[in-house]
């Protein structure tokens, strides 16, 4: 019988496990420290637990860290890691160094249900949700993990479609018994699933990023089917109603598509839509995926778009393109690797 995985359990879950197998009450916190603050790969290494406790724990559990099965290194230092998931699927993780920062971009699902027109992951369909342990393993099991300064949930999948496991992973990352990272170093990105976003805002202090890509409803519907269900206008209404305080940040991701969302009309509408909201816009260059009807805007248009927004008082940055030579955009590598075994239902 396969053993259950300890890595990715919250302190409350570890305490419950200890209670069930008859370990002392303080053992849960000790196990958490071994899992998240010390570099152990087995229960046998948890030496401040009694031998009997370790034996009891090891009967049903294992640590469960999984090394990546593949890594690609870009000329710019970006690394793309591939982890094995269940049923012949793959999890993608990117690590992007930038001067004294190292950012890891983690996936929250294998595949995605959201069907965005510009996204390669969408072409896999949805395979499965990742557990908190599988999410955290993408951080802990890469060779640079101890040097990571920032985490972004912008890999494969929609984090708020897997809100419970994402929140557990954030709890482990930011708790003093866990990795004790500042929530200000973590950003979770969503396409705007409002119930999940509200839960995230209430239960976490991490930054929020919203994939916007156009301020116009009819255009957004064609790019992002979620607009049919949760409109951008409603998303922004909820964000306006929430007190982000001075430290917590909300940003809007905006991929620049040539002739689609890069015109002065879009600038004008963005200014109207975000008027008075303390936020920033991150512009992203689009690197076409195979058979896409969309093309990326040219640099001149992007810079003009950015400068106009900044002049109008909306802090707007342009994200540097990273790892283009290794397909670092999410979904490209794993879709290439994916072995589709399941039958289609149509």
């Amino acid at each position: 019988m396969s053993k259950s995985i300890l890595f990715g359990k919250t302190l409350a879950e570890l305490n419950e496990i200890c209670k069930q197998i008859g370990l002392p009450g303080f053992a849960g916190k000790q196990i958490a420290q071994w899992l998240y603050q010390k570099e152990v790969y087995s229960i046998a290494e948890m030496t401040n637990l009694s031998l009997k406790s370790r034996e009891l724990l090891a009967q049903k559990y294992e640590v469960g860290l999984e090394a990546p099965i593949k890594v690609q290194v870009s000329a710019d230092g970006t690394k793309k890691y591939l982890f094995q998931a269940k049923a012949g699927n793959f999890i993608e993780t990117a690590m992007m160094p930038d001067n004294d920062r190292k950012t890891v971009c983690v996936s929250s699902q294998v595949g995605c249900k959201m069907g965005c027109l510009f996204c390669m992951t969408a072409r896999q369909g949805f395979q499965s949700n990742l557990t908190a342990g599988e999410i955290l393993n993408q951080y802990r099991s890469i060779s640079e993990w101890a040097e990571i300064t920032n985490l972004v949930y912008m890999g494969m999948g929609e984090p708020f479609d897997n809100i419970d496991e994402v929140l557990k992973s954030l709890e482990i990352l930011t708790s003093d018994w866990g990795y004790a990272l500042s929530p200000k170093r973590i950003t979770v990105s969503t396409i705007g699933i409002i119930p999940g976003m509200k839960t995230f805002l209430e239960k976490s202090n991490c930054h929020l990023a919203v994939s916007m890509h156009t301020p116009f409803e009819e255009e957004r519907k064609k790019l992002m089917p979620i607009e049919q269900v949760y409109s951008l206008e409603e998303v922004i209404e909820h964000i306006r109603a929430f007190d982000f305080g001075l430290q917590r940040r909300v940003s809007f991701e905006y991929i620049m598509f040539k002739g689609v969302n890069d015109t002065p009309r879009h600038v004008k509408e963005l200014i109207r839509l975000l008027n008075g909201l303390r936020c920033r816009i991150n512009l992203i260059r689009f690197h076409p995926i195979p058979d896409s009807p969309l093309q990326g805007s040219d640099d001149e248009t992007i810079m003009e778009f950015k400068d106009t927004l900044n002049r109008k008082g909306i802090i707007t940055t342009l994200r540097a393109s990273r790892g283009q030579d290794i397909y670092a955009a999410c979904g490209l590598l794993s879709t290439k690797e994916l072995v589709k075994k399941q039958e289609k239902d149509y």
Binding site: G115, F126, E219, D291, Y346
Partner: peptide
């Protein structure tokens, strides 16, 4: 399903439909 929607959308675009 997302898979069907994405497959069919890609197919329609390949056969000449505009994404909008």
């Amino acid at each position: 399903s997302a898979e069907m929607v994405v497959d069919v959308r890609n197919l329609l675009i390949k056969k000449g439909a505009e994404y909008h």
